[in-house]
Design a protein around this nucleic acid. Structure first.
Lengths: 331, 331
DNA sequence: CTGAAAGCGCTTACAG
DNA sequence: CTGAAAGCGCTTACAG
């Protein structure tokens, strides 16, 4: 079932290929009768332009790469972050009539593939997700000359333009809330130290704690429930008298609450818990989770707009969106 | 920053474009010295083949479309199903050196876009997700002649090949477990009636209930937490004496437990709860959720293999993977 | 084993 | 306003 070409449409409409091309591309320098005849032929033949041929001459592909750079261990995690970003990006790109090409790079081989793919001119731009400190991808992609933006501030020294939420301010608000509730021993479960979301939320915690004559008490996690549960066990061992914990993600807060329950601590009576992200699950925990809203979809939309308006050689300023403390029952 | 072409590599290596093409594509009919010279030139110039030009002549794109057909209301839900499928498909396709092009079709305009995109030869095959009864997409895509497979049995009369889990059997096992525990008034929160996962899980429930001289008690949901919470409220109103509920998704089970808690019912003492899917969150509810394991990633892998091995004109048999009851504390 | 040549299906100056 | 022609960057019979 061979698809009809421009040639076939031209023959049917009795015009040249150039004219068909003009009509198909919406040029307004075509006589109405001719346009109508061409459109009829297009319709009758079910003509759809071949995208490879078009890209070859226009040097555009009308697709954008969404590169997710994650270690294999987290690739199957059910972090809603991924899903929300993917959907928001697709939706926003849809308005610009562009497609999303998804690329997971979870290994060195994966990185090489992504790099080749981008260098092969397959996409007009790249959105980077989940950047880790040692990640060589940003530098490699920047070198291809293709426009690149990052969802979240990258750790690496070579920095593509990015959009992020106010991680430090959000963490600060969370911990200040705990201080305001009179909590004395406030611990934190931090995110991975090779991601800026991990670093910045920890920085916000430290600022408030050290500014209020409290001692800091830190355990590390990697944003997953399981790591939150493990970190909470560690924290209880380190200081059985703690009366509050700020987890750098809702998933870790959920894991922490699981551990607290098993240890017989009541939330918030014995230990107050605050999360970060305000994912939907935060409304369904027992008790419902007090957390910091992370405008994930809004950041994604901003990224897309940034990418689409990027002029060659230009370095736009980062965009930082505000967070908001959402008080529920856990703290 | 113009990228080097075959031409440039040929000039540098002192051979013809045909020879460079052969080396780049791994043909073994090239003399070793020449191959080495070409590879050196490729390296020095940083040559990467232009994919549009290659596709134009080979008529292949080495990418596969993943089409998610969902109403806008659910597009931003954080159902891990979406994330798991996307990741599993990418991973599996990576082994075959193919890329995933993600397409969300959440409106009539979206459908038209997807159809045009596929008809435009942008992808070599299509994987369909979240099919709803009235969805015109399967028929439209099948008409393009591009290979299509579906994740989950489609409702529509025109049926692409598919892979699914044993929804009926899984639901049966869940309800039999409740019967075995001596529960008398077993309700169900069903999925949407325009999706086979909704229909089949309800059918499994009905089979067991009606085969054990119990009355059925059904409320409808749409697989989300919120719908599960609302359905549970309805159920408690309809029959305050119910002592068990089978929810057709873990998310709905989580919503139902939320409602039960607010209504002062203890789980499982007053009301036993069983879910479906065994998402990670099921291990972190209070109490941990008894559920039916849905091998989402395995189904996705099977789909990809099916798609890649599809011969033109062939209609492979559906593949149905088994489910497994996971007993925890909620029932 | 290698090269000259045709051709994949489009777009876009350039003439007219 | 329209058409003839060149060209985008590859691959692949076909000769040799």
């Amino acid at each position: 079932m061979r698809r009809p070409t421009l040639e076939a449409v031209a023959a049917r409409a009795g015009v040249s290929r150039a004219t068909v091309s003009r009509v198909v591309n919406g040029s307004d320098t075509v006589r109405p009768e001719i346009r109508a005849a061409v459109l009829r032929a297009v319709e009758e033949l079910g003509y759809v332009p071949n995208s490879a041929a078009r890209s070859l001459v226009t040097q555009r592909t009308d697709s954008i790469g969404l590169v997710v750079s994650e270690p294999p261990s987290r690739v199957f995690s059910d972090d809603p972050f991924f899903s929300i970003v993917v959907r928001a990006v697709s939706q926003e790109l849809e308005n610009a009539d562009k497609q999303v090409v998804l690329m997971l790079a979870s290994s060195a081989a994966g990185h090489a593939r992504v790099e080749r793919y981008v260098a092969g001119g397959h996409v007009d731009g790249v959105i980077l997700l989940s950047l880790h400190g040692s990640d060589p991808l940003p530098a490699a992609l920047l070198r291809t000359g293709v426009p690149v933006v990052s969802h979240g501030r990258p750790v690496s020294t070579v920095r593509p333009p990015y959009c992020d939420c106010d991680n430090v301010g959000g963490a600060r608000a969370a911990v200040e809330h705990l201080v305001g509730k009179g909590r004395r021993r406030i611990a934190t479960i931090a995110g991975p130290p090779d991601m800026t979301a991990g670093l910045d939320r920890l920085a916000g915690y430290r600022e408030v704690v050290s500014g209020s004559d409290r001692r800091s008490l830190v355990a590390m996690g990697d944003f997953t429930r399981e790591s939150g549960a493990a970190a909470m066990r560690q924290l209880l061992e380190d200081d059985p008298d703690l009366d509050a914990v700020f987890a750098a993600s809702d998933l870790m807060a959920i894991g922490a609450m699981h551990t607290l329950r098993k240890a017989g601590r009541r939330v918030p009576d014995d230990v107050a818990v605050v999360g970060f992200d305000d994912i939907e699950a935060a409304r369904y925990t027992d008790p419902p989770l007090t957390t910091v809203r992370h405008p994930i979809a809004e950041v994604a939309q901003a990224i897309v707009r940034m990418l689409l308006s990027l002029e060659p050689g230009q370095r736009p300023e980062p965009v930082i969106l505000p967070t908001e403390l959402i008080v529920r029952d856990s703290a």
